[in-house]
């Protein structure tokens, strides 16, 4: 929980809505609304994982950018495009793979196992 807010925490609130959609709404709807409810359940799972993992991921990402001598994803994208990092492509490749892995750990962790 983050002061000054009371319990439930933001993560617990998101989980409460996700459970409501999954257990109460999903069985009661069909067709297009059922499909969109399923999407909404997945999206709230994503938000929950970002709340849990996001701060550590952001710190690691910042350190990785700094090690490459850039300040942001936009700057990294620019030096790849402009060829200013051709002698470091393996370092950049390792960092980008780690970054995309972190994004998948939030967005769809099952994808990493496929």
């Amino acid at each position: 929980m983050t002061e000054p807010h009371d319990l439930p925490s933001a993560a617990e609130l998101v989980e409460a809505v996700r459970e409501f959609l999954a257990h109460d709404v999903l069985p009661a709807v069909d067709g297009r609304v059922q499909f969109h409810t399923r999407v909404a359940v997945n999206v709230l799972g994503m938000v929950g994982r970002e709340l849990a993992l996001g701060p550590a991921q952001a710190a690691a990402h910042g350190e990785g950018l700094a090690a490459l001598g850039v300040s942001s994803e936009a700057e990294l994208a620019r030096i790849i495009r402009q060829g200013g990092a051709d002698d470091r492509m393996d370092d950049i490749g390792r960092f980008v793979r780690a970054t995309v892995r972190a994004k998948l750990e939030v967005a769809n962790p099952k994808y990493l196992a496929e």
């Binding site: 499909f35 969109h36 999407v39 909404a40 997945n42 999206v43 994503m46 492509m89 393996d90 370092d91 950049i92 490749g93 390792r94 960092f95 980008v96 793979r97 995309v100 892995r101 994004k103 998948l104 939030v106 967005a107 769809n108 994808y111 990493l112």
Partner: peptide
Amino acid sequence: VELAAIGRRVCENEWDLLDLLPYG
């Protein structure tokens, strides 16, 4: 909500693409 969710699936394609590239 469907389109919003697709925005966060872009990283699946990034993962697939990196699997085909040599860097790192």
